[in-house]
Design a protein around this nucleic acid. Structure first.
Length: 901
RNA sequence: GGACAGCUAGCUCAGUUGGUUAGAGCGUUCGGUUCACAUCCGAAAGGUCACAGGUUCGAUUCCUGUGCUGUCCACCA
């Protein structure tokens, strides 16, 4: 008595399967990588999501892609490590906490630094818990035993180590620079975190002594005592550089100086002259540095005016602007008001607070100093960043981002790494004594001995720590506790680092190429002497159906993965985000699309159900079926063709995944199972069943599809796996494709001919509105094809749903027949009095025309001496074959056209 | 202002060294369907491959230019 496994339900229900399967995977230990393994390693560092709560679809894309990389390589026999984690997200988290405090009517100063940080830590712990659950829902096979967090002690240790080393190497310095200050969040913002938004603001022109100057920000002009013109400007020829004059200004008379500068001034624009505000404008600051001008602060760090503003001191700049205008207008200095002016305002990309340039003392990383050892040369950080991509050590997919990357580096300036917020890695610098010049400075991993030291109150830019992510996460936490070890020792004594670094692929959205990817390259090459990853795979942004960015604030269009997964299944969601999506391109996601892939998953499910029923009919337990490859003696044409197609599929999928062409591979898998296996092979199996082929092919396919659809394939594997195979599907070896035998390869082509014949018959019948039951005639021109069609006649009839079919190798005239041409076959359906001659003639005429021009083109190519002499012989032969084929076909068409006359 | 991309079916996009009839999914229309699956099957319609030149026997593909769209960077007294 055969013991059948539990029969599959009529439809696949992901809800009943996914959580159970994930648990089984986790318990099986399949996710856990072994640093002691002899196998080649394959490592992916999961880009750490911000520890601020819910994951969104962008994270789902990332998880789906990376899970495919990892599962594929794990099955291929690599020691695969996918390391998950979270980022403390300094500014983002800090501002969320400040908002939470504000809801209680508190500020951070009310609760103090310690209490503030305690609250943030609790909040982050909660968020991490939620996110872990969400990552599991996507089926991500990451190694939870190695989960990391950017604020873990071992990671913080790395941050301090790198800071100190950079400081000792002279790459980190402290200096007064103009920075973008966010008065709202009370912190500096890095250059690339600044966003420009258009804003309509009036543009005023004022009389300034003998000059007319224009501005949209009169409230900053209190301290302006220089006027700049172009040295070549004829309008201002009578003024010399350094000339002084007295004039009436906002708070009375001032003495102003004329400066001539060619760099900053565009003669074409406006009046060709301007006043300078060095403290609150980057270009003015540079000018002031060049000419050693005095700099004076006008606006304080809360956005209020300083005593220089006289009566208006203490007033917020927004309120001050109309007052300043009133004053100037009253003095008769306002010349013109342009209400239609639109200009760009700088805002913080987090929080969107308007930024105010300020001169501040900050910590910077020098990107131009050539002191770093790299490939036996002294190079700058910038130079290394360029070199690793230029030399091909790091490959970016898609390639076009290379150019963007280089362009960005060319314009890169020193990186300001200090932030004036509380949440983050505190700068490992301590001071003793008073005064910026006289105090002692200590830079180290731990606080210095002795009393009287106070730590720098600033924290580091988030990207400083995430720049270390690929390797700081691989440092052994126990080893990191030993404070006597150097950075080199830490790396040397961490088995994970030795085994799993550099990582293989870094996959992320293209919008953080600069923020993060470039910083990782910078920090990792500097600190470890290794590149962080071999390949950068950039995915696009998820958009709504009408192309808008999905945002949480718009629940109408925003798709929540946690709502979609129970409804359609994680497998369907994964497919919908990968098939049809090219790297680096944004893509639109909507429910119907996900529904389409749910149908695909269900199709596979039902095909499996069919196979199961066939097994039952034959009285065999699928688990005992040895599978294809065994007992190949009695293979039909279709069987051989299937075998060959499957081999081709294995080869294509393997190569495609090795080359990160995920969309293309997804399409191949989709079309193999649906368009080929189900539509043709299973239909034939209804008459003549080869259980070995059915079960064997299904099994191999489950392995191939597993990286894309881990849940449904794992569930089906349980029902179809060979009794002798051990473990779950996740741990199965990747199939090796045997080079298809010649006879199988031929079978694949022959079977394709049959498919073509049947498709043509269907098409003619539909075209001419033929009732089923009419007699069909296929005219073949070679004995080989005649034999083929005759031997498969039953199949053809069945599949074509025709009652009669005759094969004729002697071309006869069929006046009343619709026809179609295949390679060496002509399919006719005799249709007394039904056929539309004009239509038929038109069709043939068109085809004839195209063939003629094609033949002509090849002929002239073959007549072209240059081509014949230079091209390889095979190419010339192919061209000759092509020509012969075309001419044969032309003859057939001519003949057919004659019969229609 | 600079750079990068895109423009192919109603929509979303493929198109791998220039070559026979430019593809897929969705959508539309028509037809079918007890027998794995209506989460199904079959078929059809629908394209001057943005435009103009050039190279070539032949260009969606290569080159130049133009237009439109998008993104990034820089700047705006």
């Amino acid at each position: 008595m055969v013991n059948f496994p539990q029969v599959l339900d009529k439809a696949y229900d992901p809800k009943a399967v996914e959580d159970r399967i994930y648990k089984l995977w986790e318990e099986s230990g399949a996710f856990i990588a072994d640093a002691k393994s002899d196998k080649e390693s394959f490592t992916v560092s999961m880009p750490p999501p911000n520890a601020t709560g819910q994951l969104h679809l962008g994270h789902s894309v990332m998880l789906a892609l990376e899970d495919i990389f990892i599962r594929f390589n794990r099955m291929k026999g690599k020691e695969a490590l996918w390391l998950p984690g979270t980022d403390h997200a300094a500014i983002a988290t800090n501002s969320i906490m400040e908002r939470k405090l504000a809801e209680e009517g508190l500020t951070k100063h009310d609760v103090g630094r310690d209490e503030f940080l305690k609250r943030v830590r609790n909040f982050v712990e909660d968020s991490k818990k939620t996110m872990r659950g969400q990552i599991r829902k996507m089926g991500a096979s990451c190694d939870w035993s190695r989960e990391k967090y950017t604020m873990d002690p071992s990671l913080s240790r790395c941050v301090n180590e790198v800071f100190k080393r950079m400081y000792d190497d002279g790459l980190i310095y402290r200096g007064h620079r103009i920075v973008s200050w966010d008065p709202k969040m009370q912190t500096t913002v890095a250059d690339d975190e600044v966003e420009h938004v258009e804003k309509a603001e009036p543009y005023w022109t004022f009389q300034y002594g003998p000059f007319q100057i224009s501005t949209s920000r009169p409230e900053t002009k209190f301290g302006d005592k220089y006027v700049v013109v172009h040295p070549d400007d004829p309008r201002y020829k009578k003024f010399k550089h350094g000339d002084q004059f007295e004039c009436e200004w906002i708070n009375g008379k001032i003495t102003a100086t004329v400066i001539k500068d060619a760099e900053i001034i565009d003669m074409e624009q406006g009046t060709g002259c301007m006043t300078v505000t060095p403290w609150h404008d980057k270009a003015d600051f540079d000018l002031a540095e060049r000419h050693e001008l005095e700099k004076e602060q006008v606006i304080d760090f809360d956005g209020k005016l300083l005593p220089i503003a006289g009566d208006l001191a203490g007033m917020h700049i927004d309120e001050a602007r109309p007052k300043v205008l009133e004053i100037l207008e009253a003095k008769g200095l306002l010349i013109e008001t342009d209400e239609n002016n639109i200009h760009n305002v700088s805002v913080n990309y987090r929080g969107k607070g308007i930024l105010e340039p300020q001169i501040m003392e900050q910590w910077f990383i020098d990107v131009n100093k050539e002191v770093v050892d790299w490939k036996n040369k002294k190079m700058s950080l910038k130079g290394i960043m360029q070199d690793v991509v230029k030399s091909g050590d790091i490959k970016i997919i898609p390639e076009r981002f290379d150019k963007t990357y280089f362009h960005w580096i060319d314009n890169l300036r020193d990186w300001c790494v200090s932030r004036q917020i509380w949440w983050g890695h505190r700068i490992p610098v301590w001071y003793k004594g008073k005064g910026e010049e006289e105090r002692e400075v200590y830079v180290g991993i731990n606080p210095p001995e002795g009393n009287g030291w106070t730590q720098d109150s600033d924290t580091l830019d988030t990207w400083f720590s995430s720049g270390l992510w690929t390797w700081s996460t691989l440092i052994d936490p126990e080893v990191a506790k030993d404070s006597s070890l150097s950075l080199e020792d830490l790396l040397k004594n961490s088995p994970d680092f030795q085994k799993f670094h550099p990582t293989q692929v870094l996959e992320t959205a293209y919008d953080i190429l600069f923020f993060w990817v470039a910083r990782m390259i910078l920090m990792t090459t500097y600190a470890t002497g290794q590149i962080p990853f071999d390949t950068v795979y950039l995915h696009g942004l998820v958009r709504t159906r009408d192309g808008r960015k999905m945002s949480k604030s718009d629940p109408e269009t925003c798709i929540d993965p946690l709502e979609i997964i129970p409804k359609y299944g994680a497998d369907a969601l994964r497919l919908s985000m990968i098939v049809g999506q090219m790297p680096g391109n944004d893509f639109q996601l909507y429910e119907e699309k996900i529904g389409g892939y749910r149908n695909f998953v269900n199709k596979l499910w039902n095909a499996s159900r069919f196979v199961q029923m066939k097994c039952e009919d034959e009285g065999v337990d699928p688990h005992t079926v040895a599978g294809s490859g065994s007992g190949s003696e009695n293979l039909s044409l279709a069987d051989r063709a299937l075998q060959s197609s499957l081999d081709t599929l294995i080869a294509d999928v393997t190569k495609g995944l090795d080359e990160y062409r995920l969309s293309e591979v997804g399409e191949k898998l989709y079309s193999f199972i649906w368009d080929y296996f189900c539509d043709w092979y299973l239909e034939l199996s209804k008459e003549e069943t080869n259980i070995n082929m059915l079960v064997g092919t299904l099994r191999t396919f489950l392995v191939l599809l597993h990286p894309y659809c881990p849940f449904v394939t794992e569930e089906l594997w349980e029902h179809f796996k060979f009794e002798k195979s051990e473990g779950m599907l996740i741990a199965q070896p990747w199939p090796v494709h045997s080079d298809p035998k010649k006879q199988d390869k031929d079978a694949e082509r022959d079977f394709q001919i049959i498919i073509d014949v049947i498709t043509s018959i269907r098409s003619i019948r539909a075209d001419q509105g033929v009732e089923p039951g009419l007699k069909l005639k296929a005219i073949v021109h070679t004995k080989k094809h005649q034999k083929l069609l005759e031997s498969q006649q039953e199949h053809i009839e069945r599949l074509a749903r025709l009652s009669e079919l005759t094969i004729d190798s002697s071309p006869t005239k069929h006046e009343n027949a619709a026809s179609t041409f295949l390679k060496d076959i002509e399919v006719h359906i005799p249709l007394e009095g039904v056929i539309d001659f004009d239509k038929e003639r038109g069709k043939l005429g068109k085809e004839k025309e195209k063939l003629e021009s094609f033949a002509k083109a090849i002929e002239s190519k073959l007549n072209n001496k240059k081509f014949v002499d230079n091209a390889p012989e095979e190419v010339v032969e192919t061209e000759k074959d092509k020509l012969k084929n075309a001419q044969n076909k032309l003859n057939k068409i001519e003949e057919r056209l004659k019969t229609l006359k």
